[in-house]
């Protein structure tokens, strides 16, 4: 009964929210309305000036990392907080009395020649492509966020195929990967903030890159600083992706039985010692 009441309350609140948002949407100008403020003041300014002011061919990058750098800083902080939140919640659940020491989970070593070879072939290209997406973000779609996610996924691929060979009971509350990933994520976020503060130190506003002493051409300076910000986002996001995978996937007990032609020894050894 109580659960039903709670569900009814949730439905009521969400329904009200939906109606309220719908009412709000009615006041918005139509999509693509050429006479809306966004189309008359904001967009033309970016479309006409972004190339000259920031040196970025891809306007999306110019807007995200330069004009709206403060928003992107907030986004990066939110992503970092998500990784931190997953870690805090799951660390509590693993350390609790209800669960024994986590097994190697999804991150155990997969003894498959095919997977091993494929990961060996694909992972370098995946990691390299992530860096390409980062540095090419000025010209083509992409940038720090997408590159960071791709890099993190490359790390996840490596972790899936070449996890630790044997669970280390003493040290495997989460394994060494989490600490390194957290270092990466924090370093990225701090680097972003540091770039903003560096702009203040040279007399500009927070995240006002144009004043940094990186050369004569202000557009080029902003381009370089944008690349720096994107690199910071890259590091923060790839670290957070790794944190999320390490905290959520590690501790998942491997279920199932070994294949007939497989050596069952590792499974037995894990259960006994």
């Amino acid at each position: 009964m109580k659960a039903r009441l709670r569900a009814a309350a949730a439905a009521l609140i969400l329904g009200g929210l939906f109606v309220g948002l719908l009412a709000g949407v009615r006041d918005l100008p139509p999509i693509g309305d050429p006479s809306s403020p966004a189309s008359t003041h904001v967009s033309p300014r970016f479309i006409e000036e972004a190339r000259r002011e920031t040196g970025a061919l891809n306007m999306v990058t110019a807007v995200l990392a330069d004009y709206r750098g403060y928003d992107t800083l907030g986004e990066t902080a939110v992503i970092f907080a998500a990784g931190l939140g997953a870690f805090v919640i799951l660390a509590a659940s693993i350390g609790g009395p209800r669960r024994e020491t986590p097994g190697p989970g999804l991150s155990h070593r997969v003894d498959s020649l095919l997977l091993d070879t494929a990961a060996r072939v694909l992972a370098p290209f995946l990691l390299l492509f992530a860096v390409y997406v980062l540095v090419h973000g000025h010209v083509s779609p992409g940038g720090g966020f997408q590159g960071g996610v791709l890099f993190g996924l490359g790390l996840v691929t490596l972790r899936l195929v070449w996890g630790p060979p044997r669970p280390d009971r003493a040290a495997s509350r989460f394994g060494p990967g989490v600490r390194a990933s957290f270092l990466l994520a924090s370093a990225g976020l701090l680097a972003y903030i540091a770039i903003g503060i560096a702009a203040m130190a040279f007399g500009g506003a927070f995240l006002d890159y144009g004043v940094l002493p990186l050369g004569q051409d202000p557009a080029h300076v902003r381009e370089l600083a944008t690349l720096g910000v994107e690199a910071a986002v890259f590091v923060a996001v790839s670290g957070t992706v790794a944190v999320l995978f390490e905290t959520i996937a590690v501790g998942v007990a491997e279920t199932g039985r070994p294949l007939p032609n497989e050596d069952p020894a590792p499974v037995e050894a894990r259960e006994e010692g």
Binding site: S112, L115, A118, T255, G256, P258, L259
Partner: peptide, 22 residues
Amino acid sequence: AILAVANPTGTHALARAAGRAG
């Protein structure tokens, strides 16, 4: 090239996981 490597590998991983899961 990536498809040619990744697709058979994924198929292999799926079949292997299914075999282990019984």
